[in-house]
Design a protein around this nucleic acid. Sequence first.
DNA 1: GCGAGCAGCGTACCT
DNA 2: ACAGGTACGCTGCTCGCG
Length: 801
Amino acid sequence: MKREGYLIDLLHSYDNEQSYVVLVVKEEGRKTFYRYPFDPYFYLETEDPEQVQKDLDSFSVLYKDQVVKVKRTEIVERLTPDKTWKKLLKIYCYHPNHVPMVHEALKPYGKSYEYKIPYLHRFLADTKLIPLNYIVFEEEDHEVKEILSQEDRMIPLNVMAFDIEVYNKTNPPDPRSNPIIMISLYSKNLGGKVITYRDSPGGVDGVITVRDEREMIERFCDIVNDEDVDLLIGYNSAMFDIPYLKERSKVLGTSLNLGLDYSGIEYRRHGMSATVRIPGRVHIDFYPVMRTLGGMGAVRIQRYTLEEAYRNIIGDLLGSKNIDKQEIWRYWDDDNLRDVLFRYSIGDSRAVYEISKVVLPVEIQLTKASGLPLSEVYHAPTSKMVESALMRVAVDKRYIIPNLPKESEVRLRMNNPIKGGFVKMPNPGVYEDIIVFDFRGMYPSIVVSHNVDWYSYDPDAPEEECYVSPNGYKFRKDSETLIPYVLKRLLSLRGGLKDKLKTLDKNSREYEHLFAKTQALKILINSFFGYLGYARSRWYCRECASSITAWGRYYITNTIQKAEQRGFQVLYADTDSLFILLKGHDKDDALQFLEEVNRQLPSDMELEFEGYYPRGVFVSKRTEVGKGAKKKYALIDDRGVIKIRGFELVRRDWSEIAKETQLKVLEAILKDGDPKKAVKIVKDVISSLKKGEVPLDKLIIYTELKRDPKNYAVISPEVAAAVKARDRGVKVGKGSIIGYVIGKTGKTVSEKAEYYLFAKDYDPDYYINNQVLPAVMKILRELGYSEEELKTNSRQTTLWE
DNA sequence: GCGAGCAGCGTACCT
DNA sequence: ACAGGTACGCTGCTCGCG
């Protein structure tokens, strides 16, 4: 029978010596599972494949009392990693777990390939199915016979956000003894609800009161089933809410049947992450999503709390009051406070839901662009997405996917980094009339215009058949192999979408949809260069990565030279951008120069006009006064919008008081052109710091612990604060963002550092001399002010008052 | 024993 | 667990001086 629907997710099942991929398909009105028989396999490169094939007909290995047999074999031709076509033995197994066992057992016969590709990834790459696409297929008895077609349609998803509250007087909450008191949820259909087992004294809207905790969990499962939720979303839910719910269910003698038709969920924790499988639904945790977006610089966030994430993505805070997790039990016990907690809980679910409205479209498009299931994309490193996109094409072209490097090889690669981009040192000062140009997608465009690829790299090829990089590596022109092939398609897809966007109404659903697609493509496209130089990459190519940066350095330095020959002063340049001073030239002159440059560039490369800035500041390095600091500048455009890069005020590891003062100083100089105003601002801040008037929350410095506190050679302030906090029961460790305040007690800065929750006072000298003054002096020094001047004046100011 | 000077550690930024 | 280039605060060592 012909069926059709959206491919929501994929699972694995095994039955009667047959391995299946289970497709979760959202059909008209309901979701259904369909089994797709698919045998896992790997390849063996061996001297005499025919002979080994015969031997394998009766092949079996013993593994932990289990006889593992080979299901079937065939001889195929593939391009192996030594870049020659060879006959290989393709060995099919009964169960995905058998693949590594058989591979291990067959080591004496030769080298094997593709034995470590996860089963579902293997299936997706081979069938070319894209998760979330609309599929049409032939089915019999819930078994897929044939996929007829697939289409990229806008997918309707029933999204439900949820959040739990726990009653605990001591930290951290323990599921064996601390009950869950509320489960809140938010969906388009239901709005905000909170399931609980105490009444709402004021009759808060959306409160559903049941008998006890057990019934609360069961009711939650009922609602998820009744609503037939497609996406169950939370914040830190993979590491907290889901395992807590699961544990409590066990303690209470019930089960957490959130899956389709009340099927149970699967939860596995592996160190810093976890897998959550809810059959028939997709679970997404937006905490790792925010971490990834933060790591890429797509969002700038101080700490990855739900509140911060919401503020960053949506803007204003939700109405509900923020409650300290350690205080929750008081709100539960107090009839006068419980309603506040209900509203807070619903507010959190709603916040997650609102975040998802913005971020989910991009995750959906990353799924489609990479081909990884949505359930993996949300916590996948970009390398996984690139690898997935490449694997599909490699299978198509019958290229063997190179094996993962051994640890020794990884170390070798890491100890031998490649040279990166070129950065020109600026002269510090305040400038007028700056034009910024940059190369549009420099590295991707270098790859496609010079055919840079693992497969096209050929040291033995004749030069005339190759693009030769500035550092002397040769890439064949004649064949469009893997990465340039994939990139070219992604780039043209993105180009087409951007053109289409220009014709659409910015508030339309279609615009939103296509915009998310361009965002996802941008993320993926920009990841290919990194992947070529990534030590654990399957297609690692040092020659490729170093050639790309060499060409990059060539084009930017060449453009700088041309600009200077044309009489422009080049103020600054970094990798793919250059800042020129107009000084005597007019804007058209600069644009004419731009055209000249573009005429000489390869067709896939383009230098773009980024912007015109009436004024800008470059500052001195702290260590070498007079020499300009790279990667630190502020520009103001003709509409008064300030663009700030690298300054303390964009860094999380500086206190708010230093950052806000630095911003005010920059504004006084760039907007008002009034250094005196800037000086007054600084004096006022110093004065209030001295008087102890500045609230502690403006003095918090945030720093991430990249490792466990035990593993530091040097005890820096954030480590000292973290250790003190840990001694007082706060859960901090690798990955925590530590907020601390420099207090009055102690000798060194580390001794004075106190975890923000325990900070009682602050050291004004530290905040004046180590925070505010260094931040603002950077800028004021360029205008001829000295530190002493500011400090002396400020002292006088206080005397006058 | 003590302060100055410095190297190295470590983080967060820029492209 | 995508790349390298860069600034810079802090710790903790060395060294010279007394």
